[in-house]
Amino acid sequence: MLGVEQVGARWRSGTDRAQVQVHDKVRVADGVVTLTLAAPDGGRLPDWTPGAHVDLTLDNGLTRQYSLCGDRWDAYSYRVGVLLEPAGRGGSSYVHEQLAPGHVVGLGGPRNHFPLVPAGSYLFVAGGIGITPILPMIAQADLLGAEWRLLYGGRTRGSMAFLDELSAHGDRVQVRPQDEHGLLDLAGFLGHPRPDTPVYACGPGPLLTAMERACAGWPARALRTERFVAAEQGAPVRAGAFDVELRRSGRTVTVAPDTSVLEALSAVGVEVLSSCRQGTCGTCETTVLAGVPDHRDSLLDDDERAAGDCMYPCVSRSCSDRLVLDL
């Protein structure tokens, strides 16, 4: 029996820059580890939906996106799967070689650009580590009693993560390692186009390109993909302090690495109305007049992020030395 969450420092003293602590790191396949992450104070983590990812800011300064692949009914931990990419720029090798239980990493999001739309039946196709966002989707499809099937490909059986979990689903899941079966038979798996069946695919670029071809005869929007960006391309995030200039009040505030913009403003008496302090509700939206925000919220889509004209100072930070806000 669990106690009601003891509401702690989060509302008493404002928010700290969001962080999670590595609780567990397990090798689950050749070149794949899973991380179990929890709030350093043991509190609830922000809610998420299947298909969502988080940004993790690693100690080596890199920010990487990882799909959440745990159980959303557990509010106290996240699980992500990380593939080792020797040719990458250092995010995955850092996770594999250096990150250890007890380490604390920065958290952005969760955000979801790959949401599961309501339907009575689904088809899922996963390639390699692209299985991660699909895991909570099939859990959800199961929960809703939807029809679903999964085609899961990988280089070798030993490189394919979560086969043990997936085995519980019997013949709904087709596991097709390339060294045993060759390229995935997408046409055979998809069958005839069905108007009421969304097709979700996640994996490396060539698989998604093949999926687009294979779904050419399907209704528009039937195919929903997330390009699994194992390639290391997270936005650079400043590790150090930065300045925030408040144009209307003519003040400048320095934001230290371990405080949020919102806290830094509050410390000098500039109160910005906020509510969730997790970058999910949008209450603290603030107009950006100059500088480049480091968006870490769950609200803006890629275009809105690129526009750079507003930010949520409860979680978002700065890529530039200086941000100018309409405050």
Partner: peptide, 10 residues
Amino acid sequence: DPPRHDAPRR
């Protein structure tokens, strides 16, 4: 509740 709540809320 989730999961039925997800899509309408989004």
